[in-house]
Design a protein around this nucleic acid. Sequence first.
DNA 1: ACCTTGACTTAGCATGGTGTCG
DNA 2: CGACACCATGCTAAGTCAAGGT
Length: 795
Amino acid sequence: MSSSDSEDQIPLSARLGYNQVATTRSVSSSDDDEDNVPLAMRTKISPAKRKNESDSESDTPLSSKVKPKANGNAAKKQKPQPKAKAANGKSKASAKPRVPKDSTVKVKKEPNTKKEPKVKKEPTPKSEPTVVKKIVDRKPLIKAESTASAGSQNGSEGSDDDYKWWLEQKDDDGPKWTTLEHNGVLFPPDYVPHGIPLVYKGAEITMPPPVEEVATFFAAVLGTDHAVNKVFQQNFFNDFVEIAEQHMDKHPFKEFKHCDFSRIRSHLDEQSAKRKAMTKEEKETQKKERQEIEEKYMYCTLDGRREKVGNFRIEPPSLFRGRGAHPKTGKLKRRVMPEQVTINIGPDAKIPDPPPGHRWGKVTHDNTVTWLATWKENINNSIKYVFLAAGSSLKGQSDLRKFEKARSLVTCIDGIRKQYTKDLKSKVMAERQRATALYLIDRFALRAGNEKGDDEADTVGCCSLRCEHIKLESPNIVHFDFLGKDSIRYQRTTEVDKQVWKNLRMFMRGLAKSDSDMLFDRLTTASLNKHLQTLMPGLTAKVFRTFNASFVFQQQLQNTPKGGTEAEKLLAYNRANRDVAVLCNHQRSVPKSFQNQMSRIEDKLFGVRYQRKLLKDYLLEVAPDLKKKHPEVLVKDIGIGAKEIKEYLLSVCELDREKVTKKFARDNEKLKEAKEPELPQSTLDEQLKAIDDREKSIKDGTYEPELPVAKNATTDKILEKIEKLTQRINSIEVDKIDKDENKATALSTSKVNYIDPRISIAWCKKYNVPLEKIFNKTLREKFTWAMGVDSEWTF
DNA sequence: ACCTTGACTTAGCATGGTGTCG
DNA sequence: CGACACCATGCTAAGTCAAGGT
């Protein structure tokens, strides 16, 4: 069978017009032959033999090189025993030793060779925090622009804010800074006890503050899904009891189900109500106070320039809200003490004072990293950092680097696709799996998919897909259904390249594989990325996401109407954005009020169309001769029949009744406060009566609508009004479409992380759309480096 | 050669301020 | 002018990936 290119296309790429599988033809040997190979493998090899050789045809020359380390079969029991991956036979199918390229690749490692191996502890004065130094000499910048008054103590030079780092060539992997000054981190306030008891089996238990604090954490979560999640409850309760044991001589807490947090909850509700009820001034002062405290942490001085710090606040204690089915969800995240915090700062800078009575855990001077402070969190033992803000030069530089890397894929993507398309038929199983995975990553923007542990939520990416996550349907349909990052469901049915389909079928059928087995049992993210490095320096799996997102976006923007209104252009922009979001599977929960909002828009729309219809009818009546001059007046509106109008008018009555009643209550409330006589009930009754009358007249068809123009309006005036209404209708319709298409899709993630901002900026210039319409202040700050591109810039 | 750790990007959700609309 | 939707922003969890450690 000759595979036709078009057949191999997946819908998206077809729609987008960049064509990958033109490359399919490069494999000219008949598909059938290739197709048979895997089958032959399956039928020819005895199970016993396959155990070790399952990854390749045993009698091909290539296969002799393939020496799986461990029993590949044993490695298969995937999820049940995550550690089993250790046994994954790594067939180092050395198809082609690619030595030369490697040297380029290595470049990245250079700085680290420079890094002296983590100096443990320098001899430091006993009572002082350990100070670790690791200063890497700054490589001379291309433009020795270090205007940075390297020693500036107060870093108050605001004028440096417009330092344009993107105009100079920065070294990718040199030191990250030369001088660094900052004021450390801000700790959350101490717990303030409220003394409200927890009710346990009906008994009020007043707890010592540390115990009360934990109980209060749970009270705060009441009303959310967490509160009814059994794992969350149990994890919380275990830690709660532990704390209780530490702080109470005896306590009655035996089972979660006997705990009643409602009293504490009411207290919390009261507090937040109080906060809400504060006057503007009070809020204002409070805000000012807060800012005063935060001010010193907000900025640091990096190479003499003032830069914004991101998350200078130490994370407060709380119950861990793991996403999805996280085994540790609900566990107590403990308060972080200064003694656990490491401060990273310039060697000559003043070390910030730790909170009174405390010391820093450690102070380092490591200029190979960008963080200002770090600590270890107790839930997953992971490391938390204080970094600079997104708009800082350090972040900007790496952002630019990221997009430039993705951009360099543009020129070599054809070759890479050709290569992996060819490898889809490789005789070496590991290569075939790698090529197949790469195809999925490239076409469907899947994540790499690292292995995960038992103590994490069961989510997967490409390399960690299990057989249960895909279903095949002849001739070349694949159904994906799995939980990805953040336990977001990835569900998609799509056509794939025929060879990919065959490969998937083969991988799934592999020796006695079951649903819970790894689909790509010969593949790891590490091996995949290592391979990618040989194709292009710096290439990793995630680059494909960036590349495809930006590329698709640029393609789709070509649908912008040249002569359209701004709203139409923005719609085109948002649609392109949405295509990317869909590609990357960026979801959000449908807003609770969505249905409401939608029907309100529909009502609004109908109202305006109805008004227009009234005017049209009126015109036709008073000036029938206009028919000829203005045929548009004749155009009948669809969906505005007598029945619909009646429904609409009646619903308006309903709404009006509500409105009037509410307003009445509100007015009286005010009068009451002002100690003035309240309005009599009759006022409301009169209004309601008017509405009742209207309703009746609508029902019996005697209702006479008011025209939305003055009685004596000229025809021209009326035509003008009609035109205005038409515009309004169009704009509402545009809004409506946009809204509906957006309800479950998060556009921001791709905008912030995946789409090269230069595409958007060039688009704004080309179509004369103000940048504020698409980038909010945060985004504009984050992407200052991209502002200079002209309207013709392309990704 | 593996596993772990460290550093950094990517992710959705909660929330609180703000703009808009009647 | 208040209610309400909306949006920006903060927050921190959850990924990626390569160096380091064993």
